[in-house]
Design a protein around this nucleic acid. Structure first.
Lengths: 269, 269
DNA sequence: ATTTTTCATTCCTGATTATGAATAAGTCAA
DNA sequence: TTGACTTATTCATAATCAGGAATGAAAAAT
């Protein structure tokens, strides 16, 4: 291992992208508070996140200095200020998805009982913009912002199918075709074949290609000039055999909300 | 200068607090998008924020990797994902201020025509939790999360007055008493005197002690076990002479919303 | 009061990362 | 297509910071 011999730069993921640790730590801290939902002292943050005391001190101090963390009660720990909310609202309002999309997702989640999400393309991933989680005890736990490989997911391929072949090729060039499981498609041909099969079938599907034991069904969701997708996914045991039925529910919901897909999906060029 | 001879650690502000640059950069980037309200390419971010291309590349890559930034349309720049909003909502809902506080602030802002805010104590600062801005062309521009020195602001002293003398002393010990202007109180005695005067007067006031040309009027706002304050502030020309009248409006609004203050404010011990 | 425990803060240096410059990739116009 | 231009990515090293350990301050227990 490490044939070069020297120390390796701090890299992460297939792309060789360098990670900015303290940037990631800010996000981790925000997620920590979202889960905890009450103030935390420096010592608690330090212990829970496994960070050294002094590093936590410096990081928290910086974020406090900027007005994003404060002490709701003296000496009783830090908590995010409402500034996060004002900024997040401003940013979200500037680029809204039509409300009908939220309704659609809620509708499909209710009808199928499974986790339902809307995906968009970003780089070589499909990213979830809207998520409604299943209420089953065993379910697909997905959150807004979660990403899955665009080539190894039904949500991703339902997006790919909306792009011309040339655009798809540009995306394939950047994919490393890592083997996530036995069913992960490992080359351009396999992905393109899945797209053709999906067109004939009338819907996109997946079977544990990226996340083990997860079966999904997806359809394209073109919206203005945006190329989105809607996906329903859950444990194989419950969802694999039921995929055709799930697809029918999806299609019915799309029609009901006036978002029915056009005929053939994949554009050849 | 620099008698130690060695290079100085990267410090900032009166406290000697070390700043974590890339943590601050994440927040700056979020604010950048909140102001811009549309996607930005790496080059645009790099130019607008004055960051090197490669640093911007690494920082954006890290945030994208975590699901907080994405490309709404391929090659058309990055934009924050709705994940910020889901986390901010979660965090905000866990520690709500009563809705009556928002109503109160809106009410006072409408009645006075000046910027109105609710402040809370954090360290040696008063931090604004709620802000309603004046609509005058020349006005006090304050945002949620902005902080002012607790000893050199009416909003701050209206909070201090609610704490026992011992707690106030603990706070004074950490204040550097920097001279922001000619009217900045420069010692414990001056601050304590201002508190006594405010008690006699019936309201707290300020005159360009921290921000030039800014006059403010504030009252304590105890809420459950929280010690908040409400402040109205604006340009000296418009607000200085009118402070008694502003205080009357404030008191009337507090009564109207069932938040009238108790009699004497400053606790002696 | 005194001791014990916990938490916050400072300091210094090895380890990590930010950055300029070079290169690659992509886009647009003709 | 070609060429001009813009944008994205890689790399080596100077600059900066993260983290261990010690100290100080406060709270809790005795």
């Amino acid at each position: 291992m490490n044939p070069g011999g020297g120390r390796t730069p701090h890299r992460h993921g297939a792309t060789g992208q360098m990670q900015v640790k303290q940037a990631a730590n800010v996000l981790e801290l925000l997620e920590y508070f979202a889960e905890r939902r009450r103030p935390a002292t420096l010592a608690e943050i330090s212990d829970d996140l496994g960070w050294p005391r002094s590093s936590t001190f410096n990081l928290v101090g910086t974020i406090v200095e900027r007005g994003y963390l404060y002490e709701p009660r003296p000496r009783a720990g830090y908590y995010p200020t409402p500034r996060w909310l004002t900024l997040a609202l401003t940013v979200a309002e500037a680029e809204p998805l039509p409300g009908v999309v939220d309704d659609l997702v809620a509708d499909v989640a209710a009808a199928t009982g499974e986790t339902t999400a809307v995906g968009t393309l970003t780089g070589i991933h499909a990213l979830f913009l809207v998520v409604a989680e299943s209420r089953h005890q065993v379910r697909y736990h997905a959150r807004v912002g979660d990403r899955v490989p665009v080539h190894a997911s039904s949500a991703g391929r339902a997006i790919l199918a909306q792009y011309p072949a040339a655009s798809r090729e540009a995306i394939y060039r950047r994919v490393a075709f890592e083997r996530f499981s036995d069913t992960t498609p490992l080359g351009v041909e396999n992905v393109e074949r899945a797209l053709l099969e999906a067109e004939e079938r009338g819907y996109h599907q997946s079977d544990s290609e990226y996340i083990a034991d997860l079966a999904g069904v997806a359809l394209p969701l073109p919206l203005g000039d945006r190329r989105l997708s809607i996906v329903v996914a859950g444990p194989t045991s419950r969802c694999l055999a039921r995929r055709p039925e799930t697809a029918a529910i999806l299609k019915a919901a799309l029609s009901r909300h006036g978002l029915a897909e056009p005929g053939p999906q994949a554009q050849s060029r």
